[in-house]
Design a protein around this nucleic acid. Structure first.
Length: 304
DNA sequence: ATTAGGG
DNA sequence: CCCTAAT
């Protein structure tokens, strides 16, 4: 009978133990395990068990847990989870850091190899969005994780083949529901209010920074063919995408594109003389009311 | 701190 | 997506 609740050493005791170790790389626990093993085995085949335990210990000593490994392992076990980070301030810190690094690199000139190395490792542990860290399960963010489909979220990311292509570390597919929500938010609050939209509609998303929303909107515009009427008769190829957007969405996007000057009115390169901003109809667009320019940072009631 | 634009 | 410049 094991009094400490540990399983008696079995064939795969090592495996189990390793898992345990990974979970909580703690010496105390390890010692507990050892004690448990000894106790449970009693005096019978003690030598054998002891040797096993010794092996176990050695194994542990050999491979260090490594926080990264722990994190990844834990994350994978729990399905990698869906949250990414918090989106907010981390980016700033990260950016500044990186910028500084770059500056240093430029300043020091040739002997940058060290710096480069540093930056690489820095990128490796970058916390901006890639690190699931601890993450809470989908407790609160169900509103976003509609039961629609796929939502594998993780495996469809970017790790597939691009390991060295720094750009696009990780992308997440936009689910139809997300796009709908985005369009919804844009139609409600107007183009450009990305932060507001993010806070209101994607507050639980954990990924999807305001910039992402804007980018997605840009892509939507491109996809809906609402941009660039093309002076010449060149027809826009519909770009048969692998993920054809629902026609309803397309229509909405087009509508929004009509009333929202996202790509900002194209001002002629040389002359902006006759360019008058096409006054948008008051009722059509709630965005950019000149009067609210000062107080546009109003916070909506947002529940956590 | 956010946004727009470009890569 | 990521980065940078501009506000």
């Amino acid at each position: 009978m094991s009094k400490c609740g540990c399983q008696p050493p079995a064939e795969d005791s090592i495996h189990m133990a390793s898992i345990e170790l990974r979970k909580l790389d703690d010496l105390d626990h390890d010692e507990n395990l050892l004690a448990c093993g000894i106790l449970s085995t009693g005096t019978g085949k003690r030598s054998l068990e002891v040797s096993r335990i010794d092996e176990l210990l050695r194994e542990k000593r050999l491979r260090k847990p490594t926080r990264r490994y722990i994190e990844e392992s834990s994350a994978k076990k729990s399905g990698y989870l869906k949250g990414r980070e918090k989106y907010p301030v981390a980016s700033t810190k990260d950016t500044s850091l990186k910028v500084k690094s770059c500056n240093e690199l430029h300043n020091t000139g040739r002997r940058a190899s060290t710096v480069i190395h540093e930056e690489k490792s820095l990128c490796g542990i970058r916390v901006r969005r890639g690190r699931p860290k601890k993450l809470v399960p989908q407790s609160g963010l169900e509103s976003d994780k509609e039961p629609l489909s796929s939502e594998s979220e993780d495996n469809c990311a970017t790790k597939k083949k691009a390991k060295k292509h720094d750009r696009r570390k990780h992308q997440r597919m936009w689910t139809p529901s997300e796009v709908i929500k985005l369009v919804d938010g844009i139609s409600e609050y107007g183009v450009g209010r990305w932060t507001d939209i993010k806070r209101l509609l994607f507050s639980t998303s954990a990924y999807r920074t305001p910039i992402d929303l804007r980018d997605k909107w840009r892509n939507l515009l491109r996809a809906s063919g609402a941009e660039k009427p093309n002076k010449k008769g060149v027809e826009q190829k519909q770009e048969h995408s692998l993920r054809p957007l629902p026609s309803s969405l397309l229509r909405r996007v087009r509508e929004l594109a009509k009333i929202h000057p996202y790509p900002r009115v194209r001002i002629s390169k040389k002359s902006c003389i006759g360019q008058v901003a096409p006054a948008m109809h008051p009722g059509a667009c709630k965005s950019a009311p000149p009067s609210s320019l000062s107080g546009r940072r109003v916070r909506r009631k947002n529940f956590t």
